[in-house]
Amino acid sequence: MRAWEVLDVGGLVTVQDAGRPGLAHLGVPRAGWLDAPAARHAHRLVGNDDRPATRALLEVTLGGLRLRSTASRWVAVTGAACTVSVDGAARAHGRPEWLPAGAELRLGPATTGVRSYLAVAGGLDVEPVLGSRSTDTLAWVGPPLVTAGTVLALGEPAGPPVPVDVPAVVRPGPLRVRPGPRADWFAADALDRLCATSYVAAPASDRVGLRLAADSALERVRPGELASEGMVLGAVQVPPDGRPVVLLADHPTTGGYPVLAVVERDDLARCAQVRPGGAVRFVRVP
């Protein structure tokens, strides 16, 4: 079998593709890569552009990765910056690199950002579950976590690598938000306060949500509980402690905390790359 054997992982490493949308009514989270532009860039670099949504790659969180390949393949690393080496020799981040059969590929810890993406020509040929190869870390639908000893089958390469390609431009500045469906559960100026507050990404942030902390809490004006309702990607939920959570790909399909605002889709990739302790601000779009 043409495969990767994982020798060591530093942090959370999962298999991801574009996810399994369309099953929220059964309680199944969408899952899928958190930083879509970076993941798609990695796929383009190794020639997986024929069907990038269903080609699977690895999402490597903060800690690094070491693996050995039984087949020669083009690979590419994008997203969070990290060192890349093949049998100890330095290789580039953000470019297709040749990984010969038997060689050891190593990704160092992320130096900026949180999530690096490692794509291989042909993709990772793990068994799809409900139409997707993504691991959902909330309900554990999909392939198991990647750990030392995991063997990942490799798909057949479809096209040649693309050496010249630029990542999508990441827009700097605050996360853009629109008012959410439950803004009336908060004081009239709550959205303004959300946008005027300097937040810090909490260490408990994960694939379910970017959890934020600040000195001041957002106050509700409406007491009681909201009946659980469907949740969207990028919803800014505010639990009773007043600390907002931006829902990411593994979010529960329904939730009982009111949604004050919704982050614009194009800004979600940045939510995936904010390190714990990193600053987060919001701005309202008209």
């Binding site: 949308p21 369309g22 929220a24 009946a227 309702e229």
Partner: peptide, 15 residues
Amino acid sequence: AVEVVPAATTVLFDG
């Protein structure tokens, strides 16, 4: 809609 999600007193049309 990609998702049609009924709940206790709502229906979400997403995607």
